[in-house]
Amino acid sequence: MIDHSNREDFLNAIAEKAGRPRHQLQDHPFEPLNDLPETTLSGHSQDELEAIAKKNSEAVHVTFETTNKAGLADALNAYIEHDAPKTLILPTTDQYDDYGLRDWTKTVAPKPMYWTPGKGRDFNLKQAAAADVAIGFADYLLAESGTITIATTPGQGRGFHFLPTHYLAIVKKSNILPRSRQAMDRYDAAIKAGELQTSNINFITGPSNSGDIEMTLVVGVHGPLDMTYLVVEDM
């Protein structure tokens, strides 16, 4: 049993200062006064959302590419060739089967390292930090902001998205959503239903950046120096 005296003391004190009794919330739950988060940018077809996503992704310095399932392996190889990396990291996931990439993982060069469940913190972080290129899977792409969203899994950890130098995220066209709200609705429901057990959800909008030195935009500070989104159009 956790001792809550520190908390009770604190909460009673602020309730008293506010002059409002505690435990009133259950009768006054939050009801938003408008539905702008849901309705903004609604009513677009998937083709339109893709066009909007492309425009907004490019605006945040992302390279936006499209392919189809049959061309996915070739598209990835072309991407890798471009940077001529010495090291490549991939997630451990069943999604390779879904995307038809199982064979590609066996032939791709350089030979991939994997973010590996059960291998622990140091092993995985060191590998990710040593990776020139990371290729991962995003859950959703948000049209309005050019954002990919990813929930951390045992096979694709937090550091996977931050430590490598170059980063590519594969995402299905059917998973392009209008805004952050639609993605959040899905995560919120999945967490509450117990379908998603994760400690971390990332909304990533382009490569890291800073304006800290004389407000000059520098792209690529702590995270990857560049980012590519690869949309699979027939999925």
Partner: peptide, 16 residues
Amino acid sequence: SYCSFSGKQVEGEADG
């Protein structure tokens, strides 16, 4: 660039 929603490591995860 990064809006993150994050807490204590969940079993099976390597980092966090």
